[in-house]
Amino acid sequence: MDLLDWHRETLSARRLALLVKHLPRDSALNRELHGEAAEWSVSDHLLAAAVDHLAAANWMFACVNSEEGDQPEPPTPVPRPSYDDEGEAPPTTEPSPSPSPDPGSTPNDEAPSAVQLARFFG
């Protein structure tokens, strides 16, 4: 696809916007706009959360079954991308209050975003 087609008026602005909007996650534009966060999928966030939880469970087991002076160091969490570029705050461990659902509303069928998953799993 030649982007000069937009200037030649053979590519409409609507089609160009649609092409840009649906670029793949690993495209150069997404990496430039979102940095490392563009490379993290939902699966990556879930895997990092699982690794962190397993490390914490192993650490707790080691703490309970070791002597008082021989306590292991707490595990360091898997480094995650920062979301400051998107105007979002970095994920926190504090749960955000959720609004009460409308009795007449239907549940949202959209998958959670990577930012929402990171915020949920901390």
Results as ranks from 00 to 15, higher is better:
His34Asn: 13
His34Phe: 10
His34Arg: 13
Gly35Asn: 14
Gly35Ser: 11
Gly35Arg: 15
Gly35Val: 15
Gly35Asp: 14
Glu36Gly: 12
Glu36Asn: 11
Glu36Gln: 15
Glu36His: 11
Glu36Trp: 07
Ala37Gln: 13
Ala37Val: 08
Ala37Cys: 10
Ala38Glu: 12
Ala38Asp: 13
Ala38Val: 13
Ala38Ser: 14
Ala38Trp: 09
Glu39Trp: 11
Glu39Ser: 14
Glu39Lys: 14
Glu39Met: 11
Trp40Val: 09
Trp40Phe: 15
Ser41Trp: 05
Ser41Glu: 10
Ser41Met: 09
Val42Ser: 10
Val42Thr: 14
Val42Phe: 06
Val42Trp: 04
Val42Glu: 11
Ser43Leu: 15
Ser43Cys: 12
Ser43Ile: 10
Ser43Thr: 12
Asp44Cys: 15
His45Ser: 07
His45Glu: 08
His45Arg: 06
Leu46Val: 07
Leu46Ile: 08
Leu47Gln: 15
Leu47Lys: 13
Ala48Pro: 09
Ala49Asn: 04
Ala49Gly: 11
Ala49Met: 10
Ala50Thr: 15
Ala50His: 14
Ala50Asp: 10
Val51Lys: 03
Asp52Glu: 07
Asp52Pro: 07
Asp52Phe: 15
His53Gln: 06
His53Ala: 06
Leu54Ser: 07
Leu54Met: 08
Leu54Tyr: 14
Ala55Gly: 01
Ala55Phe: 06
Ala57Trp: 12
Asn58Thr: 03
Asn58Ala: 06
Asn58Gln: 08
Trp59Gly: 00
Met60Leu: 05
Phe61Leu: 05
Ala62Thr: 08
Cys63Gln: 05
Cys63Val: 08
Cys63Met: 05
Cys63Ala: 02
Val64Lys: 14
Val64Arg: 12
Val64Trp: 05
Ser66Cys: 04
Glu68Tyr: 04
Glu68Val: 02
Glu68Lys: 09
Gly69Cys: 10
Gly69Ala: 10
Gly69Lys: 15
Asp70Ser: 08
Asp70Met: 08
Gln71Gly: 01
Gln71Glu: 07
Glu73Tyr: 03
Glu73Gly: 06
Glu73Trp: 02
Pro74Ser: 00
Pro74Lys: 00
Pro75Asn: 05
Pro75Ile: 11
Pro75Lys: 06
Thr76Lys: 02
Pro77Thr: 02
Pro77Phe: 07
Val78His: 01
Val78Asn: 00
Val78Cys: 02
Val78Thr: 02
Pro79Ile: 03
Pro79Trp: 03
Pro79Gly: 03
Arg80Tyr: 05
Arg80Lys: 10
Pro81Phe: 08
Pro81Ile: 04
Ser82Val: 02
Ser82Phe: 09
Ser82Asn: 10
Ser82Gln: 12
Tyr83Pro: 00
Tyr83Ile: 00
Tyr83Asp: 02
Tyr83Leu: 04
Asp84Trp: 15
Asp84Phe: 12
Asp84Cys: 04
